[in-house]
């Protein structure tokens, strides 16, 4: 996308520069110029580029969609001013504050909602944003290959405490995930 954009930008700048450098051809008919500039560059060129880009975007978007499977883990993220609280379908009653535990290597559905104003759940290295809206549950599918710690933040302006409103995602290996859930059962 960046390379394509750079190419289009360069093209426009070159056309602008050449307009100042060339001596205009005096006998070109207005109709021929319209055909080149408007049918060609104005209409056909963007339509072709955008169609390609859009198809690419939709295909990528499709792969990001949550698909049902047996080993999907469901967790719940509740935002409030200005902290995050997480719950786990596999361990009823277990809640963690400011830290979301997930298993690595398995698809995870995060059910996102808010207890007060609109927030947004964003762990940049795991997935895009999804808003936390009061009275509504949005589901975000994430999947982490490697165990480790990942940073997350609130990404919709939510008042004076917004800048510091962050959380951590800890992805466990299978043993660690079992231990985490087991700890809850004790």
């Amino acid at each position: 996308m960046l390379a394509g954009s750079a190419a289009i930008f360069t093209l426009v700048m070159l056309l602008l520069l050449i307009a100042y450098r060339r001596t205009p051809a005096p006998h070109q008919s207005e109709h021929r110029q319209e055909r080149f500039w408007l049918y060609g560059l104005g209409l056909a060129f963007p339509l072709a580029t955008l169609a390609a880009l859009l198809i690419y975007g939709l295909v990528v978007g499709e792969t990001l969609l949550p698909k049902s499977g047996d080993d999907v883990v469901t967790v719940r993220a509740e935002a409030r001013q200005w902290s995050w609280s997480f719950g786990y379908a596999d361990a009823a009653g277990l809640r963690t504050q400011g830290v979301l535990h997930i298993p690595a290597g398995r698809p995870v559905d995060v059910e996102i909602t808010s207890l007060d104003v609109v927030h947004s759940f964003w762990a940049p290295r795991l997935a895009g944003k999804l808003d936390a809206i009061p009275g509504q549950v949005n589901v975000l599918r994430i999947e982490v290959a490697e165990p480790g710690e990942y940073q997350g933040v609130d990404a919709e302006f939510s008042g004076p405490g917004y800048s510091g409103d962050a959380f951590t995602v800890i992805a466990h290996d299978p043993a660690g995930w079992g231990a985490f859930l087991g700890r809850a059962k004790e």
Partner: peptide
Amino acid sequence: TLVAVPTGIQIFAWLGTLWKGQ
């Protein structure tokens, strides 16, 4: 993405105008 089309038409109409004149 479609809005880029009429925007593009205007941009190229202006560039074409520059090429047409001095």
